[in-house]
Nucleic acid binder design. Structure first.
Length: 555
RNA sequence: GCGGGCGUAGCUCAAUGGCUAGAGCGUCAGCCUUCCAAGCUGAAUGUUGUGGGUUCGACUCCCAUCGCCCGCUCCA
């Protein structure tokens, strides 16, 4: 697997050989959507089936030496829209953005903060305007003096408490008000409401108020850019809807609004009680699901890496709260082992722990399995996220649905809401990794390139080729083909020269070719040609099926 | 959405504003071929993204529009 400019060649090969086509191509395409061709769907299904097999049908052995409990699920793509209110996606996936007209930087509006300082001697108008942020009745005393942009990229709302004192200090300094020493000591700054409003006190009590507010709420005053400092250069916040909306039923009004799921996980949480009540499972156990998910990405990029419709393989592991760190570590190791087991070059895989400030709203800790994609190299890009979701989701659904989500643990004789560890893989990203990993230029062979798929994932397992299309060879080949296709996906290719046919099989990554030649009629043997080495062995035609079974493995 | 780049055959690409828009590869047919012959012969495949304009004449210049690619942001 090679450098970034091979990505174009890979994309071209994917189309030329029927792996992946641009969606709606005859209408000029549609950005962020891809169609999986005959070979692509086979490759993707092979990966999908392997995950399902190793997760649901034959789950890993747990730390106690016994197999884990795991069940499967296939929930609906469209659910009651309250699902997404409860999960936080209706809020979280509607991120307003602002752009700097000067330096062209884009910020998430809730990560750009403005600081308003509200002190004595300000106009009534501003005072009243500010009071909405202060959650006070209009007509209160005080004055707004300052509007200051002061967000650093990567600052989250949660960090505002750390950020605010410094910003306030600067504000006070720049505008020469107040004694900014007063807010240096943390105890002198207290959070009034939410994350935005700070009360700065001195010995005499209330001195002045500051409001730190994300740009989403900062309508009115000048909007300087935190990056380049240009005055009033930010645009109004614009909404980017990351969830696809649709309408259920014939009448298209707001009441009928629903969403295409942006992750498969919520379908699992919605069915937690059902599974618990019907499947004789005990905590700890897991529910696994594979399916499509949809995100209206601002910018789909890098082939199928970031597409608007994609496929996930997700598992939610429910465990007692005090065991969550143990299971987090367990799945972290287990998932890495799984990816390595696919035959991926170990140097191209790594684990990366998320920093606190990049954690999603639902997670306590998160680690990514990352792959060195050609377009990210020498850096890595995400392939799977293993999140410690705590009891966030079940708790939220309990709140919103009023249905109890707690679990009675008979062994501990206690009730709790289970904590959740979530290994969430991209199936379509996984297929992309298999493609990237397999792509092997080789100037020495006629095809100049071959796809070095692990035999287990190769879309076609073997080619059945008569050396020449005469002397009864095609007949023998067809007989072998009919026998093999009962168990394996095999190609029968009779026409054209043998070299040309080998080359074609190389390019689609067929690991073995069985060739019927003159000797076959004499001693019932065929040659087996290995894709990776180009070497050939002679084996009995009756052993071909066993040969493939051994090479490709069982289920 | 903003900025930059690009749209010619299935793919990769040519073609000073001027003959019927070409080449290689792939595909298909025939031939050849007893293990790399992806060799030989031939065939099919284009509203040059779309619409307008300038011009005697536009793949080429201008405008608009659509789409794709790269960056910003987001994420499996």
């Amino acid at each position: 697997m090679a450098e970034a400019n091979t990505m174009d060649a890979l994309v071209a090969l994917c189309k030329r050989r029927g792996f992946i086509y641009p969606a709606s191509e005859i209408y000029g395409g549609i950005n962020g959507f891809w169609d999986y061709g005959p070979l692509g769907v086979q490759l993707k299904n092979n990966l999908r089936d392997h995950w399902w097999r190793s997760m649901v049908e034959c789950p890993p052995i747990g730390p106690d030496g016994h197999p884990l409990q795991m069940v499967g699920l296939d929930s609906s793509i469209i659910q009651n829209p309250n699902t997404w209110v409860a999960s936080g996606h209706v809020g979280g996936f509607n991120d307003p953005m602002v752009d700097c007209r000067e330096c062209k930087t884009r910020f998430r509006a809730d990560k750009v903060f403005y600081v308003y300082v509200f002190s004595e001697a300000c106009s009534r108008e501003i005072k009243d305007d500010m009071s909405i942020y202060l959650n006070r009745d209009p007509g209160c005393e005080g004055e707004v003096e300052i509007v200051l942009a002061a967000a650093a990229e990567g600052d989250s709302l949660e960090q505002a408490a750390d950020f605010a004192p410094e910003a306030i200090r600067q504000a006070a300094k720049n505008h020469n008000i107040g004694n900014f020493k007063k807010c240096e000591a943390p105890e002198e700054v207290s959070l009034l409401r939410g994350l935005g409003t700070f009360l700065l006190k001195d010995k005499n009590g209330l001195d002045f108020l500051t409001v730190v507010t994300p740009a989403t709420r900062a309508d009115g005053g000048p909007r300087p850019c935190p990056r380049c400092g240009a005055a009033d250069s930010l645009t109004e916040p614009r909404l980017f809807n990351l969830m696809f909306e649709t309408f259920v039923g014939a009448v298209k009004d707001e009441d009928a609004k629903a969403y295409l799921r942006p992750e498969t996980a919520q379908g699992i949480f919605l069915n937690f009680k059902n599974v618990l009540d019907t499947m004789r499972v005990k905590v700890p156990f897991g529910i696994a699901q594979i399916g499509k998910a949809f995100r209206n990405e601002v910018t789909p990029r890098n082939f199928v890496f970031r597409s608007r419709e994609f496929e996930q393989m997700e598992m939610e592991w429910f465990c007692p709260p005090d065991e969550a760190p143990k299971w987090y570590e367990f799945w972290k190791a287990e998932r890495m082992k799984w990816w390595r087991g696919l035959g991926i070059e170990p140097a191209n895989l790594r684990l990366r722990d998320h920093d606190k400030d990049e954690l999603a709203h639902y997670s306590d800790a998160c680690v990514d399995v990352e792959y060195k994609y050609p377009f990210t190299a020498p850096n890595f890009g995400e392939l799977e996220g293993i999140a410690h979701r705590g009891c966030f989701d079940l708790t939220r659904h309990q709140e919103h649905s009023k249905i109890k989500m707690d679990y009675f643990d008979p062994e501990r004789n206690e009730r709790y809401i289970p904590h959740v560890i979530e290994p969430a893989s991209g199936l379509t990203r996984g297929a992309l990794v298999l493609l990237c990993e397999a792509y092997t230029p080789d100037e020495s062979r006629p095809s100049k390139v071959f796809m070095k798929f692990h035999p287990k994932f190769a879309p076609v397992k073997a080619g059945v080729l008569p050396l020449v299309a005469k002397d009864g060879m095609p007949e023998i080949a067809e007989k072998l083909y009919l026998e093999l296709r009962e168990t394996f996906i095999v190609d029968l290719d009779i026409k054209q020269s043998i070299g040309k046919r080998y080359a074609r099989q190389d390019e689609i990554g067929t690991p073995y070719c069985f060739t019927i030649d003159g000797q076959t009629k004499e001693d019932d043997t065929v040659t087996v040609r290995y894709r990776d080495t180009l070497q050939q062995d002679r084996i009995a035609i009756s052993k071909v099926k066993d040969f493939l079974a051994e090479k490709i493995g069982g289920k």
